[in-house]
């Protein structure tokens, strides 16, 4: 009777699948304790801004160095992105629920794109809001320098969220220790080693973000080592390569036969 397979090769499922996977990922990533931890993290720059105000400190460059650069850029951004980036597939992999996604007639790149979209969106909301609120409290009242400093770091958060999330998401598909590797990358590679070996700037998301921020707002930053165009080009390459690698990985996904 109905033994004939319906060999539909077009994948119409992909259109409806994208928003579904995005929504699923939002709900996965916003567990109660996670959200609390992340909100506390993101609230820190605004809190510091309040403390700066309370002590009557109004110097824009000092606030930029100490809060935007030290806290937002090197602590809040890497931690938020490593959590969202590795978490996008992390729980699915740990629990084995990734099978429910993969056993569907959806192009693998759609799955990667949806997961990445959700993780980037969450990271953007968190980091950009954090910088905006902190800036509005402390430096924006100080005039145009304060405005452009805030804008510059909003730009850095956008580029940084995109690049870091994709980097960590792809990493998590290749190794179980992606989280520690990601933290190590930001702390050792981008932090300690890049001051010893200047060439590392070309392979540092932090430098991409700072370079792009610098380009848009002409802010004085001795921290930015890459020219704006280089930073943008390298960011674009990183995003494309990460997406391609993640898709390749899902296409070649193999289960081990053992049942734990």
């Amino acid at each position: 009777m109905s033994g004939t397979p319906m060999t539909g090769s077009s994948m119409t499922g992909s259109l409806t699948a994208f928003p579904e996977i995005v929504r699923l990922t939002f709900r996965q990533q916003l567990g109660r304790r996670r959200t609390l931890l992340l909100v506390l993290l993101a609230a820190l720059p605004p809190l510091l801004a309040l403390i700066f105000r309370a002590f009557g400190e109004v110097d824009v460059s000092r606030f930029t160095d100490r809060v935007f650069d030290l806290v937002s850029m090197t602590i809040v951004l890497p931690l938020a992105t490593v959590l969202f980036g590795t978490g996008a597939f992390g729980a699915e992999n740990d629990e084995g629920t990734i099978l429910y996604l993969l056993a569907k007639p959806i192009s693998r790149w759609v799955i990667v794109a949806a997961k990445a979209f959700a993780a980037v969106a969450l990271s953007l909301v968190l980091t950009v809001a954090s910088v905006l609120v902190a800036g509005a409290i402390e430096v924006v009242p100080a005039g145009s320098a304060g405005v452009s400093a805030t804008e510059a770091y909003v730009g850095a958060m956008v580029v940084g969220s995109l690049c870091y999330v994709l980097l960590f998401l792809t990493l998590s598909l290749f190794t179980r220790r992606a989280l520690v590797l990601g933290i190590g990358y930001s702390l050792v590679w981008e932090g300690a080693l890049s001051s010893l070996l200047p060439g590392i700037a070309n392979l540092s998301v932090r430098q991409y973000a700072l370079g792009v921020a610098d380009s848009f707002y002409q802010l004085h930053q001795q921290a930015a080592r890459l020219s704006p165009t280089t930073a943008l080009t390298l960011s674009a390459i990183l995003i494309v390569v990460a997406l391609a690698l993640a898709t390749w990985r899902l296409m070649h996904f193999e289960l081990s036969g053992s049942t734990d």
Binding site: L37, L70, I75, L79, L179, L187
Partner: peptide
Amino acid sequence: AYSAIGLIAYFLLMEAV
């Protein structure tokens, strides 16, 4: 994963803040 994130957040923030 959460333990690791919590730990690194503690160490980094308690150094900086």
